[in-house]
Amino acid sequence: MATTSAPAVRPDLAAHQPSAAMIWTALAVVYVVWGSTYLAIRIVVEAQIPPMLGMAARFLIAATLLATFLVVRSGGRRLRVTRSELLGAGTVGLLLLALGNGAVAVAEQTVPSGLAALLVAAVPLWLMLLRVGGGERPRLLTWAGVLIGFGGAALLSVSGGDTSAKPLSVGILVLGTICWAIGSRFSPRLGLPKDPLVATVYEMAIGGAAMVLIGVLRGEPGRLHLGAVDTKGWFALAYLVGFGSLIAYSAYTYLLANAPISLIGTYAYVNPAVAVFLGWLILDEHVTAKILLGGAVVVLGVALVVSAERRPRAAAVPADPAPPDPAVPPAPPAADR
């Protein structure tokens, strides 16, 4: 990912083949930073900041800061987009942020951050089912991974009895992961702005505005008391703005435009390890054997799916071999992780 101090990706350079180093750097950022955002979101909602309004502030502030940086760096013309590009960015912002990330924040009022991350680990499985709906025929190993992964998700869904998680919150979280998967799957087809950073600005701005509306409909303004928010809550919100949005979400947008979706989906089974560890270390969240088992099953299922999808498919007819899988960057050296 390009951070706010890195060279911006220009529309006229978008056609260039992205380097493996850039793709793996962006993945590393999403792996680690998004794993920590589950903890930050939990701290925000525990600090009595209403979830939708808190996440709206996160994305609207980040969009304003990123837009200001782009204008100062390249001028106002940098932010010009067509109507279709604006519509595409708005659709992604609604699905990924307002409905996807918003659901995580609402659910984490009762769902521990580690459990939330484990449930979100099912995103690659939803992505695979969307591909099936689009007419693709996955391998048997892929189907095995899907069945195993959903079994783990089901185990996690009933583990609420061992935690403070409520079934409704778990259901909201699952719906949010489906919205995130839909947005991720169809993002490359929506005609987004060619500059990933510009696309990020509009996605965060529109998604954040939608969150304000949803928050108002949920009656959140009446529950917002700024004086009651402690320093820890403000610090967590600032972390979400700077690291979770400006850095990690920009990295994810870059990946959606430049990397295979099967590779992008691997973040979902790295994030839980980070989230569970930080939740246990900082918030003293109770990690039960059922949660660990369910999480391990989800990770196994997703790993099988990704492993199967990265293998070249054998040619069905020798005279007309199947095209190779989209270019997947080589695995990074161990030191890159």
Rank of each mutant, 00 (worst) to 15 (best):
S113N: 08
G114C: 10
L115V: 13
A116P: 00
A116I: 11
A116V: 13
A117V: 02
A117M: 09
A117H: 06
A117R: 03
A117P: 01
A117T: 09
A117L: 02
L118W: 12
L118Y: 10
L118M: 15
L118V: 03
L119N: 05
L119V: 13
L119G: 02
V120Q: 03
V120M: 06
V120P: 04
A121L: 11
A121W: 10
A121F: 06
A121G: 15
A121I: 07
A122V: 14
A122L: 01
A122F: 09
A122W: 08
V123S: 05
V123P: 00
V123N: 00
V123K: 00
V123A: 11
P124V: 09
P124G: 14
P124K: 02
P124Y: 09
P124Q: 01
L125M: 07
L125G: 09
L125K: 00
W126V: 11
W126M: 04
W126N: 04
L127F: 04
M128R: 00
M128D: 03
M128F: 07
L129P: 05
L129G: 03
L129M: 13
L130R: 04
L130A: 11
L130V: 14
R131I: 03
R131A: 12
R131S: 14
V132K: 00
V132N: 02
V132Q: 04
V132F: 14
V132G: 01
G133H: 14
G133L: 08
G133Y: 13
G134D: 15
G135K: 00
G135R: 02
G135I: 10
G135F: 14
E136Y: 09
E136D: 05
R137I: 07
R137N: 07
R137M: 08
R137D: 00
R137T: 10
P138T: 04
P138F: 08
R139Y: 15
R139A: 13
R139P: 02
R139V: 09
R139T: 13
R139C: 06
L140Y: 15
L140F: 15
L141K: 05
L141T: 14
L141G: 13
T142S: 14
W143K: 10
W143E: 12
W143D: 11
A144L: 12
A144V: 14
A144S: 14
A144H: 04
A144G: 13
